[in-house]
Design a protein around this nucleic acid. Structure first.
Lengths: 173, 173
DNA sequence: GTCAATGCAAACATTTTGCAACTCT
DNA sequence: AGAGTTGCAAAATGTTTGCATTGAC
């Protein structure tokens, strides 16, 4: 899904970030550099906590607060995108040098399927124009059932999402 | 935006909810009825807390926990939809008897513009089919700048957040 | 009568904040 | 030198949970 990033791409991203910071009188600190690199090297989705752990494992110490303060910067300068995969924590993915894509999320097994955003982009442009809106980005998540889940449970419970209450009564698949 | 709902629509929604509950051996309690009605009568977006306050003002006491336990039921039976307007709390809107729509969110002033989902639905159907996914619903949010904000701030802080890789390669519009 | 739902408060998880010490520029 | 940043711990949110009691079917 996410393509591995080469050092060159990271270097370019670094320049973008640095410039973004400089433009607003912010500083390119060691921690921000560490975070940028960690983010760029992280394939797939991640949350703040995950990033923290990953860094710890590499022996890099960055305060949790710093992560929470840096992620929005990376989002604002377009290197990272927020994606909403659950209703819990915020998930991120770096998009720099990646093909734009959106997500389908299976309500039963949680599987995430990525799909190319080309058509969505086109539609977004059209809609934005129609409302004189200047679109900068979008988030699209389609929820439903993945192929496997539809097959494994062809009849029962057609459309719903498993309910806590319900689950206790009938148990899980 | 949201059309006012007449009592008839509420009554129908009530039936849907009741049936949904009965089908799974759940109960149609007084609190659930109160919540369903409050939700149906609430035009526009709301959060759990807001609902609580609104009910309090009407002298109706429903525990916060009950609200948090009931909203997912309403979402699951399709009467209410989750929309993510901010990164903070979960926002909801009732969709029963409303025209399907999605949202554009202005990053500067927070204004929310709704737009018809027809095209999005069509696209979603196409994409789902292409990946053998059984789509049940979707969330689309387009973020950017509304007309007023673009005008009020034509030059400053060029609204970055363009496709980074592409941007670095081909420069900015 | 039974199983589920409510209310309450305590527990949780995640994110934000205040502040002193420190670091880029 | 000075504005911005970090780390830490405390605080603030928003949401979930345990449990005794109450209520629907």
């Amino acid at each position: 899904m996410a393509r591995p990033v080469d050092d060159e791409t990271i270097a370019t991203a670094e320049n973008v970030f640095r410039e973004y910071l400089r433009d607003r009188g912010l500083k390119y600190t060691y921690e921000r550099q560490v975070l940028l690199q960690a983010v760029m090297r992280h394939d797939g989705h991640f949350e703040a906590e995950e990033l923290l752990l990953r860094l710890r494992q590499q022996g890099l110490r960055v305060a949790k607060a710093t992560i929470y303060r840096t992620l929005p910067l990376l989002v604002n300068c377009g290197i990272v995108k927020q994606v909403q995969l659950s209703n819990k924590q915020t998930h991120y993915e770096h998009t720099y040098g990646q093909d734009p894509h959106d997500h389908m999320i299976c309500r039963r097994c949680g599987r995430i399927i990525e799909f190319d955003s080309e058509d969505v982009m086109r539609l977004r442009t059209m809609i934005a124009a129609r409302h004189s809106f200047y679109a900068l980005s979008h988030r699209l998540a389609i929820t439903g059932l993945c192929e496997a889940c539809v097959k494994s449970c062809p009849v029962a419970l057609p459309p719903l999402q498993l309910q806590p209450a319900a689950a206790s009564r009938r148990g899980r698949p």
